[in-house]
Amino acid sequence: MREPRHSDPDPPRPADAVRFEHAAVQVGGRTIWSDVNISVPSGEFCAVLGPNGVGKSTLVKAALGLVPLSAGSVTVLGQPAGQSGRRIGYLPQRRSFDPGLRVRGIDVVRLGSDGERWGVPLPFADRLLPSRRAARERVAEAIEVVGATAFAGRPIGQVSGGEQQRLLIAQALVRRPSLLVLDEPLDSLDLPSQTAVAALIARICREHGVTVMLVAHDVNPILPYLNRVAYLARGGAVCGTPAEVITSPTLTALYGTPVEVLRASDGRLVVVGEPEAPARHTDRHGDQARPW
């Protein structure tokens, strides 16, 4: 990832990599959220936060053009959503691989570079054709950037969750995207891995000028690196710097019920009283007060 994106001449860079304007989404006739205004300036690290089921994954899918808006607009890298697919690296929410899947990590990463092309990869083409050789080098490079070289040759179902997550980040990175969309990449990682992966993403953002939009349910591991936070609620969203957004008055106004933000002595933030979304589809978190 030394010289990102010098090969393709980009259209002139808009100031905002992602911009939602008065956006709303309906799934199955139900409005998930409405009147959402979010902007992520190019090259910044932005977190999307909110309680379970509020529609964070739906938000990133709308940015990718996978879910249509019912109102408003979304612009991604200067184009309507869904039209800059090649320049976006996407990591969907927690997908685990079947432990019996006999495909190596490096193959999964490689799919990120040419998976949607029709036809069969010709045997040995990646040694002979210069363009294929370059693609091969990019795969190796992406794997190196995330520190996955040691286990990229093992079947993906047999490496640990954290190792899978690194490989998947490499897959999202392999095309040197301008925008990385990561849906809960820290989910199910232990604390040291969370810290390491968060630092890794921040480094990619800083050193390669990649805009990062990251969904999280715990802001603390990424808090030191964040430029921006989008807090999502049913009626809308607030977007701004962490210091502006993660405060008792802002969140109380957003949710319409008293929400308190406490700062622990070690700098960690704890959000108390945040309401549950009306219809929850998972019950991963039963507790009311969560460390954010």
């Binding site: 990718l64 996978l66 697919g85 996407y90 990591l91 969907p92 997908r95 691989f97 899947l101 495909v103 193959d107 999964v108 799919l111 990120g112 998976g115 949607e116 993906i156 897959q171 999202a172």
Partner: peptide, 8 residues
């Protein structure tokens, strides 16, 4: 191998 990313 990876239906979600493929769809995206």
């Amino acid at each position: 191998v990876d239906p979600d990313v493929a769809a995206a």
